[in-house]
Amino acid sequence: MQFKYKIAGGDFTNAGNASSAVKKILKQLNVDHTVSKHIVVALYEAEVNIVAHAYSGVIEVNIDKNQIHIILDDKGPGIADIDQAMEEGYSTASPQVREMGFGAGMGLANMKRNADKMLISSELGKGTKVELIHYLKPDEG
């Protein structure tokens, strides 16, 4: 089953709406709340990343009985050095964004910690694509 959410860059007011919607879906699917918490935390980080750094983005959530596969595809500046961006504390967020309490440089690392699998690809000047995979059955992780 697939769900899609559009994200507007710079709209911090609505950052988190997609995560909340996905959380509701996971509750309806009776996904264990500790698993669901990891998914929602990773997704929220990713959602805020799009709002903070990109111009626009689309989140696609694919759910089947074995796994949740989330694809976040944004149009934005892209990431020059993904390894560096993965380091805790590294951030390119503007001072204004940091003042709002975002952009502490923990986003990608936190996402990776909360997901079973994370893939990132990026093209400078075009955008970034992040895939988050969570397995719903513990033995497949």
Partner: peptide, 12 residues
Amino acid sequence: MEKLDEDISKAL
């Protein structure tokens, strides 16, 4: 109270 079913396949 929000779960549609205990079993995820059925819930889906």
